[in-house]
Amino acid sequence: MNIHVQDAPQRALGFLITQASLIEPQVYATKYQDIQYPSLIPVDTSAPEWIQSVTYFSGDAVGAASWFSGKAQDVPNVELLREKFETTVSMAAIGYRYDLEELGKAMLLGMNLNADKANAARRVSEEFIEQVAFLGDTSKGLTGLVNNGSVTATAAPADGSGSATTFASKTPDQVLRDINGQLTGIFTGSLGAEMADTLLLPYSVLLDLSTRRIDATNQTTILEWVERNNIYTRTTGGRLDIRGIWGLDTAGSGGTKRMVAYRRDPSVVKMHIPMPFRFLPVWQVGPILFEVPGLFRLGGVDIRRPKSVRYLDGI
């Protein structure tokens, strides 16, 4: 009987290793529909897994062409203004565990372990990355997409009802004007080179725009009207992607609601994840306790061309 008890942990470990090889492919294939960072921020996994930091340059070109005589010597030149930035890459972890009793029951009944614990660990890792992607992490000195200090932040005009700045206090025309002002601000700031194709709003503002009609007799909501009449769609024929995300209700100056307009392109914004989430081999961490660690390594969000991103506060 003593031999049987002593052998139990080794048999349980072997059983868990076999089960993990079945569970992990299922977990890696799972997509979480409400995790938005992969569809809103270009992700780069090309850097070496154990790299300590990623260096990038944020630049802008200055200069203009002008009329020129064939006998002249003062050819106008373009100059590149480049600033070096470095993003630290750090490691994070989340895993799951089983005790000998749980594994023993499964072995006795001939049952496979379900993927619930592994899925929960992977889900927690995605929520962590989502938080860093949008809001950054002060403990690591990281900012996110919605609170980068290099991005131009302007206050919404105070011409709503009662001189308020919020979209809820404004007419459909005023809301469209404020949104188009941010889109054209990027167009002007980049000297006509690009225009924002993505707009992020607090969920509360998105809900208001998606349920409030443009007038008492028209069934069209303000959101639908904005989607059709914004300057990006009118200029390019493309669809302006308008999304609601968490964290914008207090991201603006003075804790106000913030709108983010940007061009969703790796040359503008990028997040480095050199080591995507992975499970390590199962190991025994106690006399009757077994653990499957999960690791991932990531940096913050790099806004490489700040003029291609704009914030509007007080909406």
Rank of each mutant, 00 (worst) to 15 (best):
G300Q: 04
S210K: 13
D99F: 01
A153I: 05
M271H: 03
F167R: 03
T18I: 09
G160I: 11
R82L: 07
P306E: 02
R11P: 02
P76D: 01
G136H: 06
F290E: 08
V54H: 14
M195F: 01
I273G: 02
I179F: 05
L103Y: 10
E227N: 06
H4K: 12
M271W: 06
A156V: 07
S39H: 07
V268L: 06
A164W: 04
S210N: 15
A155D: 01
V285Q: 12
R239Q: 11
E224G: 14
D99I: 00
L295G: 02
G160W: 01
D302S: 15
R258Q: 11
D215W: 00
N2R: 14
A168F: 05
E224I: 03
Q10E: 12
P38L: 02
W283N: 14
S308M: 11
F187V: 08
Q52H: 09
I288D: 15
S139G: 02
A155P: 04
A120L: 09
N148K: 01
K117I: 07
R11V: 06
Y96A: 07
A133Y: 10
A106H: 07
N218T: 13
I23S: 10
F128T: 10
L280P: 13
I186C: 03
T217Q: 04
V146D: 03
F85C: 01
A155T: 09
Q36S: 09
S69V: 08
I3K: 09
V175R: 10
S161E: 13
L201M: 10
R213H: 15
V268D: 03
N114F: 10
